[in-house]
Computed example of a mutant assay.
Amino acid sequence: MSSVTTRTMTAYRFVPSKHNPVPEIIPVPIPTEGQVLVRVLAAGVCHSDVGILIPGGALSHFVPPTIFTLGHEGAGIIAELGPSVASTFPQLKIGDYVAIWSGNPCQKPTCIACSRGYTNLCTIEHGIHGLRHDGSWAEYIALRASSVVPVPGTLDGIAPAIISAATDAVLTPYHAMKTSCRVQAEHTVLCMGIGGLGLNGVDIAKKCLGARCVIACDTRSVALHDALAAGADYAVPPEQLLSLIEEERLVVDFAFDFVGIQATFDACFAAIRPGGTIHVLGLLADTLAYTALTAMRKDLTLKSSFWGTRDELAEILQAISDGLLKPKVDSRPMSQCIQVLDDMREGRLQARVALVPDAIAVRIASYKL
């Protein structure tokens, strides 16, 4: 046993019936067969974290009634290799800078998800770190060696906060746009809601997939400004969307709803062309309704998707390293996670937030001074 595994750490835990994470002192995990121990340098905060903390809410049914460490977005360095990792994953070494893909697919040929490439959907055996099993809102996390993705860059070149955001806030719209909808250069894309996912969606559609036209729509002027900086061709509030489409003679092929409330869903319905696709990624409403005849008369396709795969995350990290994608991320000490969640609930955040373990945050602050 290495010295690191004899230590304790502060972890921010999901406790059934509690509205906020509960800090607990727990042992630093010991990596078991096929696992690595990662020292967390940054861990993202997501609307899903808000959702699962609502007792009786739609997302609360996604997690088991057990205690576990939150955080399904993360980045760090490998601190320890578990048994057999050195031989089965010779490319991984202690000190490697990695992104944490929090999936645990079974990879069995009989699995209806894994056998078709949907490893992001397999929760048969292990669930997802941060949503079912211990996640990255702690100083360390132990997970499968197959679930870490080496970062094609250095800590100085690409900040851990950016890498942590890539594991979900970038991965989710990337999977939706590239894999699920197959957005291409000839398409016009509407991004409804320019928050943590929507802003990255603009970036992906324009710079990775080369979409001909990207329209950003949000109620906040600062979000519209960010969208234009990310490459959007147009950025307007919802009340101006249809006028813009008519005046500029735009034809919306794909409408991505990054909010997921009835008003944004209806706006996508109104804006999409006949034969177009509405893809819902936002989870702010438990249910969304539509008139069947309205969808039929437009011959629409209604889609949704969940997260993304490890291979897609590797593609994203390369795009970030190449300078194609530049996620907007703020950092805060991990001990402020409840305040960050409150800010997210109240719509006060201007960007994705990554939590930095307090000991690291103090060193960063001292360095800046």
Rank of each mutant, 00 (worst) to 15 (best):
I100H: 02
T119Y: 00
S136L: 09
M1S: 14
V38W: 03
L190A: 12
F62Y: 07
T6H: 08
S102V: 13
L288F: 04
P23W: 14
F258D: 02
A232T: 02
I124W: 00
L171Y: 02
V15G: 08
G71P: 05
D134P: 07
A319T: 02
T8F: 03
R39I: 06
P83Y: 08
H225T: 13
Q184N: 14
T287E: 10
Y367V: 06
H72V: 11
V251Y: 12
V36W: 02
V28Q: 07
T179I: 13
Y140M: 06
P237Y: 01
V356H: 02
M344N: 06
S2Q: 13
Y12Q: 04
G117A: 12
I364F: 13
D253K: 12
K368P: 02
Q107W: 09
A229C: 07
V4P: 02
K298S: 09
S147V: 01
S87E: 14
A145F: 00
L293D: 06
V214L: 04
T154D: 09
K298I: 07
C114G: 09
R182W: 05
P29I: 12
G44V: 05
R273P: 05
D168K: 03
R345E: 09
K108L: 15
Q350L: 14
S366F: 07
T119I: 14
D330C: 11
I272Q: 07
Y140S: 09
S115P: 02
G157Q: 13
P27F: 05
I338A: 12
A351R: 10
H47E: 03
D358N: 13
C106M: 08
T123D: 05
K207A: 08
S221G: 05
A319G: 06
H129E: 09
V189E: 01
P21L: 10
L324F: 00
V252G: 09
Y234A: 09
M177K: 06
G308V: 12
F254Y: 14
G34R: 02
S243P: 00
A142E: 06
A145S: 08
F258P: 04
H126S: 15
T264G: 07
S3N: 11
D168T: 03
Q184V: 03
D96F: 03
A216V: 02
G103S: 11
G347Y: 13
E247Y: 14
H279G: 15
G117C: 13
A270E: 13
T219H: 05
G198P: 03
D299P: 01
E247K: 15
L143Y: 03
D311C: 13
A145P: 04
R310C: 15
S331R: 10
G198W: 04
I100R: 00
Q339L: 13
A166Q: 02
K326R: 13
L349R: 12
K178P: 03
G103E: 04
G193W: 05
D233C: 10
